[in-house]
């Protein structure tokens, strides 16, 4: 699978991968394509294309407002695939991050088929745990898509084990207990969660929630295989593609630095 190759390449360069998130259709479909292209150009190794959803319970105010804006501007679910195609067509790689109901409603098989056809690599599912994922486990095999599940500081060893066994591509470690949003400090528990996760799997582990600067990216890169940045890109999007590209470049520099200051004060 292609995410596997991506992480092998990143590893060969002795650095962490940079994964950037923006919602599809934010603020409009056309503008979101330009913003995502800027993320690719600025050095994001993988793009998380978010699906705007009416009830984003894992998201803080920044991403809530962005999703709301996209929906108010008329975003339709099937446009997710256009947006993914614009990323892959621009030479980038994309996975889709989505709450489960839109996929459930579209049809899990149909969604996977259309995502694969658009060149997408997989799905990140913040409210679908492997326990409920039977259909998705089967369908993702059929269409050759990666299943990126989340682990959290509150996950037991047993749950981490079950999650990584069902996952492919990489494992998404939510660094702090809480909703998405840029933070001044990366959660001190992040390194510990990565360590616990790696004890159960050889899959790469990405760390998300809270990173907003090159310096923080370097801190996370010291212990994780990928640095995931969301809310900071949403905020940067206000400044248009130039600002998004500048943030991507700063973060791309960060993931190549590995500051070594792995554990920061809580």
């Amino acid at each position: 699978m292609s995410l596997k190759r991506l992480f092998e390449q990143v590893k060969a360069e002795d650095r962490a991968a940079l994964i950037g998130y923006l919602p599809a259709g934010f603020p409009t479909v056309a503008e979101s394509k330009d913003l995502l292209a800027a993320m690719v150009d600025g050095g994001c190794d993988l793009i998380e294309v978010g699906v705007p959803y009416s009830d984003p319970v894992m998201d803080g105010p920044t991403i809530q407002v962005a999703a709301d804006t996209a929906l108010r501007n008329g975003f339709r679910l099937r446009q997710t695939f256009d947006v993914v195609e614009s990323v892959t067509g621009h030479g980038g790689r994309a996975v889709v991050m989505t709450y489960w109901n839109p996929v459930h409603h579209y049809g899990v098989d149909a969604f996977a088929r259309d995502l694969a056809a658009a060149g997408g690599d997989g799905l990140i599912t913040p409210d679908l745990v492997p326990d409920e994922a039977e259909e998705w486990l089967a369908v993702s095999e059929t269409h050759g898509l990666d299943r990126i599940f989340l682990v959290a500081p509150s996950s037991s060893e047993e749950r981490i084990d079950r999650t990584v066994k069902a996952a492919s591509g990489f494992v998404y470690a939510t660094a702090v207990m809480g909703v998405t949003g840029a933070r001044d400090q990366v959660g001190a528990g992040a390194a510990e969660l990565v360590r616990r996760t790696k004890a159960h799997t050889t899959l790469p582990v990405g760390v998300g929630i809270g990173v907003r600067s090159g310096e923080q990216a370097a801190e996370v890169a010291a212990f994780a295989d990928a640095v995931i940045v969301g809310s900071a890109f949403v905020t940067a999007a206000e400044g248009g593609p130039g600002a998004v590209r500048a943030l991507a470049e700063e973060l791309a520099g960060g993931v190549r630095q590995k500051s070594g200051r792995a554990t920061v004060a809580p």
């Binding site: 409210d127 745990v129 409920e132 989340l150 749950r159």
Partner: peptide, 14 residues
């Protein structure tokens, strides 16, 4: 029914 919830809350539900 079931549990369509973030992993972070599964521990509390358990």
């Amino acid at each position: 029914g079931g549990r369509f919830m973030p992993e972070a809350l599964i521990g509390a539900l358990d």
